[in-house]
Amino acid sequence: MLQSVGHTEITGGTGTLSIRDITCESARIDAFDSHEQIFLGEDPSRGLKAIVAIHNTRLGPALGGTRIWPHETFDAALTDVLRLSRGMTLKAAISGLPFGGGKALIVADARTAKTPELLDAYAEMLLALKDRFWTAEDVGMTLADADYLRARTPNVSGTSSGGGGNPSPITAEGVFLGLKAAVEHRHGSEDLTGLKVAVQGLGAVGWALCERLHAAGAALIVADIDADRAGEATSEFGARKCAADAIHAADADIFAPCALGGMLNGNSIPELKAGIIAGSANNQLAREEDAVLLKESGILYAPDYVINSGGLINVAAELEPGGYEAEAAFARLRHIPETLADIFHRAEATGMTTNEVAEALALERIAAAS
């Protein structure tokens, strides 16, 4: 276990893992936002370069998924993990969970570079940080990967042995419930029959969301960087396929971003035709100011860290003293539409953006615990 801030090396497997505290160095990044600790783990012989960002632990130990993604530059990777880590702080707080916010990013292509050796090295890093950071699946990491890590270090949730399993279906269920809450707020009914929903990204969560939307009678427009995956959706759901770089501008009632973040920006927002945005992607807004653009455009935005909190709720349930209980996890999940309805009403009453209201609610809970 790491006992102090600084630098440590762990020799194991076929290489040497170096773990370095880069908190002070990271302060130059705009997304730093007073993170408590940031660690860089490197083991070149096993292909590991990983960042673990711990944003805020006032409510409890840091909890957040591990993303595997091949960013082109280290600064881009660092910015991504810092923004995600801060989002986890807000997500845990607004969900009423006894955890702080953290996130991890392995800089690699999950399709070609995710080897047992890389995962072994990362497990050693997690083991060294075990009292500071708990993790689970995210983009590029599967349930099998989480099980592999859990066999080597205790601070991994969302595993087969923990009872919660893959959190993606739970995340999708929360997004589906939140999307219906947005529809009810805007149209006075949560009935989705005939409404056109444009879904960007058909990964585990996006696909599971499509299943629920299709069953509810929505008409789907889909896009994914994997053309074959989009083709499968057209057959499975009777969906209309759209180019991945044009799905945001589709003629739809609802836009559900379920891919990577940052796609709601000064260029894309003027092209939106949907009156509601409700999807699972993290960090959907490129800048906080983009929430104002959405409001001025008359678009109802469901803050991402509220509507997509189902996965976190589920993996957190594994860490309860009595172990995982599905009904307790689903009880928290059912609060997502209630929380969103409250945010929508407060935003209308105050003139604030929905993002501002959500953040204020989360920060109030953190402040109360200080």
Score class of each variant (00 low, 15 high):
V205E: 09
V107G: 03
T66P: 06
A256M: 08
A239G: 07
K241F: 03
T16M: 11
V306W: 10
H335A: 15
L97Q: 08
K103D: 10
A218F: 07
A274R: 02
A204E: 15
S161H: 12
H185V: 01
A172D: 04
T171R: 07
A53D: 09
A291N: 04
K130E: 15
H185M: 09
A367G: 00
E72G: 02
L272M: 11
A326H: 13
W69K: 15
A281C: 07
I38C: 08
G162N: 02
R346E: 15
Y301P: 04
L195A: 01
P257Y: 06
P337I: 11
T115D: 07
A369P: 05
S18Q: 14
R240T: 15
S161Q: 14
L300V: 15
A244L: 08
L78Y: 00
A62M: 09
F330C: 01
E327N: 12
S280K: 12
A317K: 08
N308P: 09
G41A: 14
I10S: 05
R186Y: 09
Y305R: 07
R346P: 00
A358Q: 04
A368G: 07
T11E: 12
E296R: 15
P270M: 10
G64M: 07
L90Q: 07
I10K: 04
A76F: 00
T73Y: 10
P167G: 12
L105W: 05
A121T: 06
L192H: 06
G261C: 09
G174A: 05
P154M: 09
D138M: 04
H345P: 00
E327H: 11
A181F: 01
L126R: 09
C210H: 11
G41T: 03
I225G: 00
V183I: 06
N155M: 02
L333Q: 06
T115I: 12
W207R: 13
H335P: 00
G266V: 06
K241W: 02
W134H: 14
Y122L: 06
D21E: 14
L59E: 03
G279H: 13
A182H: 01
A316H: 08
I269K: 13
T193Y: 09
P44M: 01
S189H: 13
E327Q: 14
